[in-house]
């Protein structure tokens, strides 16, 4: 294996040695990759709500609206991050069965999973999760409905801003709408391995 390291690196050096001049790293403003006209001067929560809808996700402004949506879909069993449950529990009626421990041997028992987001991106309608904030990777992925609780103050305007804020967490994931595929004859199907419903609950 170490031999392979040396042989690869020496071949790379050999390949580059004949170049008289090497291409410089271009200097640029990340602004050129931002859809500025979309976000300029607007309330980021409003842009985010509009953009997540465009990627067939949903943003709801209060827990009552979330509970109504879950009830309407018949998604009555689920998981909730134990840190969130005390504030959310009063909104859920007795017809719901919500667990604060996630049992990975029963993944199909959870119709929804409620976890905390690390932030959101307005421009693309993206929910940001990471290891520090999201209580369980599986609970945000395996249930049919994923609800991410997003603070209004945590919404980044655009992709470059969100990249700059990745920080030290070993695993940051951007989720933009429900899991989907078009592998079979190019027909779009939502809910492949991950959630078929990607919902952001906006809180102050």
């Amino acid at each position: 294996m170490n031999d392979d390291r040396e042989s690869i690196l020496s071949r790379v050096r050999g390949a580059l040695a004949p170049l008289h001049e090497r291409a410089a790293l271009p200097d640029y403003d990340t602004e050129i990759a931002v859809m500025r006209s979309l976000i300029a001067g607007r309330d980021l929560a409003e842009v985010f709500t509009e953009r997540i809808k465009r990627v067939s996700g949903l943003a709801v402004a209060d827990p009552a609206a979330l509970v109504a949506h879950l009830r309407a879909g018949g998604w009555l069993r689920g998981y909730c991050d134990p840190a969130l449950w005390p504030q959310l529990a009063p909104h859920f009626g007795p017809e719901f069965k919500v667990e604060v421990d996630y049992d990975r041997t029963r993944v199909d028992d959870y119709a929804f999973g409620i976890t905390r987001a690390a932030g959101a991106i307005a421009e693309s309608g993206t929910i940001i999760l990471n290891d520090a904030t999201t209580s369980r990777r599986l609970a945000a992925l395996a249930p049919w409905v994923h609800v991410a609780v997003v603070g209004r103050g945590q919404i980044f305007a655009d992709l470059p801003q969100a990249v700059a804020a990745i920080g030290g967490d070993p695993n940051v994931i951007w989720c933009t709408g429900p899991s989907k595929t078009a592998d079979v004859e190019g027909i779009l199907i939502e809910g492949v391995h991950g959630p078929g419903q990607q919902i952001a609950l906006l809180v102050d």
């Binding site: 990627v55 290891d131 990745i166 695993n171 994931i173 933009t176 709408g177 991950g194």
Partner: peptide
């Protein structure tokens, strides 16, 4: 505009 899942991984889980 963006792929559904974009994951940034620097190491084993926290």
């Amino acid at each position: 505009e963006l792929t559904v899942y974009t994951e940034f991984i620097s190491g084993p889980k926290s």
